[in-house]
């Protein structure tokens, strides 16, 4: 299989790999780069477990070709904390019992971050809309919605 070079930043770090032409960003991140915070749930764009942020926009990495990400800035939940200091979303999910099995959590947090990056003070309806592409089979969503709203409140307090 023909291999192509791909170069991008992942959570601020330069990454360069040769990948098979046609391989998804999901596979490249998990199997080549070793960022297993990105989860493979359906690999057909329906569950949101693989969601990452590419150049500021939420993307399903299972439907994104790695070779189309040359020069991009990619963010994943695996790079969100600074050492032991959690991002406000991570803290809110942890303290608000917004995880159970944890499999949807990294993609859910990415969807939430993409929302807050664009809209720091979202309404409940904004939050529901923002995570509407992410399936959680454990929590029933309510603790997740509350955690995202709590993180938004924490952000506004720290900004004030």
């Amino acid at each position: 299989m023909k291999k192509v070079p791909v170069q991008f930043t992942l959570n601020g770090e330069e990454k360069a790999e040769f990948v098979e032409s046609g391989v998804t960003l999901l596979k490249a991140l998990r199997e080549k780069i070793g960022d297993t915070s990105v989860k493979a749930g359906c690999q057909q764009g329906t569950c949101g477990s693989c969601a990452v942020i590419v150049d500021g926009e939420l993307r399903l990495s299972c439907l994104t070709l790695a070779e189309r990400c040359g020069g991009a800035a990619i963010e994943t939940t695996g790079g969100l904390a600074h050492g032991e200091v959690l991002h406000p979303l991570q803290r809110a999910f942890n303290e608000g019992f917004a995880t159970q099995c944890g499999f949807c959590t990294p993609g859910m947090i990415m969807a939430a971050k993409a929302l807050l990056d664009h809209n720091p003070q979202p309404s409940r309806e904004d939050v529901v809309e923002a995570i509407s592409g992410n399936i959680c089979r454990c929590t029933g969503y309510e603790p997740i919605i509350q955690a995202i709203l709590a993180a938004a409140r924490a952000n506004s307090l720290s900004a004030a």
Binding site: T36, G78, L80, L89, N94, T99, G102, F103
Partner: peptide, 21 residues
Amino acid sequence: RLRADALGHVTGTTTFFADRN
């Protein structure tokens, strides 16, 4: 009490079976 496994979940560091190369 906080869940013992939640910190791994929110940081993406919980090791699921497939997270191995």
